[in-house]
Amino acid sequence: MTAVAESYQVQTRRNRMGFWLFFLSESFLFGGLLVARYYLWGNTRPSMEDTVIGPLHISYQVIPLMITAVLLLSSFFMNRAEVAIANDDRKTFSRSILLTVLMGLIFLLGVLIFEWGWKTVDGQIVLGRHISPTDGVFGAVLYGMTGMHALHVVSGLVLLMLVWNLGRKGHFSPEKHWGVEATAIYWHYVDLVWVFFYPAIYLIGVGVHAAGH
């Protein structure tokens, strides 16, 4: 704050507090989406159990579970990256970050391809193999929640690539790596949100079948 910069420790402590306040604020955003979900869906949810895909005829219900697992795993690698940089191990740091990015991408593609079901019909790209955003409140809330979360995943991926690049150039040391720490807690926060969203969208409530089925 003065012309003589505050010590790194002092500023890091402030940054950390600021970041957590930001998470608190974001929790109200995601909490608002949960409110909408419980208000509009109540004790129901769109049923997925009987829709199957692929040659193996996997039930749709399994796909969210799989991408959830991938996201958890990405959090684990993020944690490893942070531990690595705190110990000045840049090689492991790089590798772990890249793995985190990979898992994040798989999660994102899982949402985009399997969940949202982008497909081409007569040369036009349309949404909704399983359910589309215009399918009443079920579609609206499902796309609203996964969309807002995916937006945070994307920004998390951008942050990850940035710190990966900076780490490669040797910008972080065991004493000074707030950039990595910030990215890490942001990424874990995205995971944390999914911990609340996954059951709210896919598990809680009675599965309701589409009228057409």
């Binding site: 208000y39 509009l40 589309s132 399918d135 409140v137």
Partner: peptide, 15 residues
């Protein structure tokens, strides 16, 4: 303009 009338409606302005 929903084409597929699968799960139409159910919204609530009071929310």
């Amino acid at each position: 303009w929903s084409e597929v009338d699968k799960w139409a409606g159910g919204g609530n302005p009071i929310l």
